[in-house]
Design a protein around this nucleic acid. Structure first.
Lengths: 145, 145
DNA sequence: TCTTGACCTGTGTCTAACACACAGGCTTAT
DNA sequence: ATAAGCCTGTGTGTTAGACACAGGTCAAGA
């Protein structure tokens, strides 16, 4: 089957299929006659797997690692179990970041509601933003590293 | 002052300063003698503003818009107020996504704990991931558009 | 048979916000 | 003068695809 057929089967765009082909996760056979790539059922299964993995937040590199094992017939379950624990930790971290950001934004909106507009000066661009440098949850005195 | 001095003052890397210079948000004067860029106090103020804005989740493009007004002496407060409301909405959306992802991951870990490892077959790469296609909160039957 | 138009394909380039690599210039001690 | 060691600007890499585009292919009509 050809790229757009596979895409339609899985309800994704042809560009997505082409992308995973380009980086080598799908290996269709290139037709000698017209140069079109011919995708097998196996390719479709792999693409479906990729979608499931991406849906769980796995990166393309993660998926490469998984395939590098399964393509040799080895089970990837063990690494996958490790990976998902890490993913969960990362997600938790990002989640906390979101919470902080959200509270910063909410607080800024609240505080700004009582402040007037103001023209910029030489060293002050927008006093609203500049005045929000030390909101609760902000990493005010933190070192960027 | 030179790039690394400014960077040190604000506790960021020289690369960050160079980045904002490259895209035109900072406009140091290029020394005729050695080609080094000379940053003013104003540049440092602008850089500090950029950091505050980024800390609130504003994008570089947002910041460009803000500067395009303040560089003409106009107040940016009004746009900034609009922008932050949008930001808050976006953040809320992303927050919900994180919640969904987190619950998917948690549920996957729980479900997988009772399942054995398994070798890949022709159309099954890792039954753990493939079996998680329809977790609660997952966009199972959703159309990717 | 030829042509027209619609559809399809592969490839090159773009995205955000920096981080990293690297060749060369500058400074200071010897 | 020279060697070592910072310092600088610029080119490129990063995610996961999206978009643009020139050219190929195919069925219908003349």
């Amino acid at each position: 089957m050809r790229v757009n057929q596979l895409a339609k089967n899985l309800n994704i765009t042809g560009d997505t299929v082409r992308f995973y082909t380009r980086i080598g996760l799908l290996t269709p056979i290139k037709s000698e006659v017209n140069g079109y790539k011919d995708y097998s059922e196996t390719d479709q299964s792999r693409m479906q797997f990729i979608l499931s993995a991406r849906n769980l937040g796995f990166s393309v590199d993660d998926i490469k690692v998984i395939f590098s094992r399964t393509d040799h017939g080895e089970s990837a379950c063990q690494i996958v179990r490790q990976m998902i624990v890490l993913k969960l930790q990362e997600t938790e971290k990002q989640f906390q970041e979101m919470v902080k950001l959200r509270s910063k934004l909410t607080q800024a909106v609240t505080e700004w509601s009582t402040k007037p507009d103001q023209a910029p000066t030489g060293n002050m661009i927008c006093h609203l933003i500049e005045g929000s440098a030390n909101l609760s949850g902000a990493n005010g005195g933190e070192h960027h590293e």
